[in-house]
């Protein structure tokens, strides 16, 4: 079991305490391609933050590859994120004043990999994603799809255990969305990457092999979707957008 959550609770303290996650139990195996689906306010973003060690949970247990993720120092959390998790964000989150290849290099920079080595690796990954000739370009010179592929290269470069994609197609048109989802699917099938996609679009979720529905802070239905014909929210026959 790569990812294991047992009765994870999270409450946001405030004037009116908000109990966002109410006892999440979830297991994800190595090599799975999973989507977590829910509407806004369902707690899926909070769950993603906890899965990505970006946020703490109040009670319960979260293990990655058997390692308990609990009460980590910021430094330790940063190290775990760097080594175990690759992030793909809706808004790409590339650093604007760095070129594509520099963006891809960045996680390795924080690992202390030598200049030469990390440049070589970054170029290799960009090449894999068909962006070798864009290596020297800045994010604002690229299309959304290209930016997202740079972000994917950045997520992959540390050879993480898990890829966490937060609405990876949210800012893309439907044609590019299909490309990106195909790419993720291919990564899962060929490289056996464990990929978790958080989304509210059923079309996106339909690409994954397992759809985990979350509603009001609890896990609802878990749909096996090996046939990719889920139409969970009844959107037009499960096509993207």
């Amino acid at each position: 079991m790569l990812i294991e959550l047992k009765d994870v609770n999270k409450t946001y303290q405030g004037a009116q305490p908000l109990h966002v996650l109410k006892g999440i139990n979830l297991s994800i195996e190595k090599g799975e391609f999973v989507s977590i689906m829910g509407s806004s306010g369902s707690g899926k973003s909070t769950l993603l933050n906890i899965l990505g060690i970006l946020d703490n949970y109040d009670s319960g247990e979260y293990r990655i590859d058997g390692k308990l993720i609990w009460d980590l120092s910021e430094t330790k959390a940063a190290e775990y994120r760097n080594k175990m998790i690759g992030f793909i964000f809706q808004s790409y989150n590339l650093i604007g004043f760095k070129t594509a290849v520099e963006n891809v290099e960045l996680p390795l920079f924080y690992q202390g990999v030598s200049r030469h080595k990390r440049h070589e690796m970054a170029m290799e990954y960009l090449d894999k994603l068909g962006l070798a000739q864009w290596a020297g370009h800045y994010p604002n010179e690229m299309s959304g799809g290209q930016k997202q592929r740079v972000a994917i290269a950045r997520a992959l470069i540390t050879k993480p255990d898990i890829i966490l994609a937060d609405e990876p197609t949210g800012a893309l048109d439907s044609r590019t969305s299909v490309e990106i989802m195909d790419l993720l699917k291919e990564l899962n099938e060929k490289e056996k990457m464990t990929i978790i996609v958080v989304t509210h679009e059923s079309g996106v979720a339909n690409y994954t092999n397992k759809i985990i529905h979350i509603k009001d802070g609890v896990i609802g239905q878990i749909e096996e979707n090996s046939r990719h014909d889920a139409t969970a929210f009844g959107s037009e026959n499960g096509m993207l957008k």
């Binding site: 940063a78 994120r81 992030f87 924080y110 690992q111 950045r154």
Partner: peptide, 16 residues
């Protein structure tokens, strides 16, 4: 803030 957040997310420690 965003840039620093990104750096932190992809593995920069607070000390870095």
């Amino acid at each position: 803030t965003t840039e620093i957040g990104i750096r932190r997310a992809i593995g920069a420690t607070p000390n870095m």
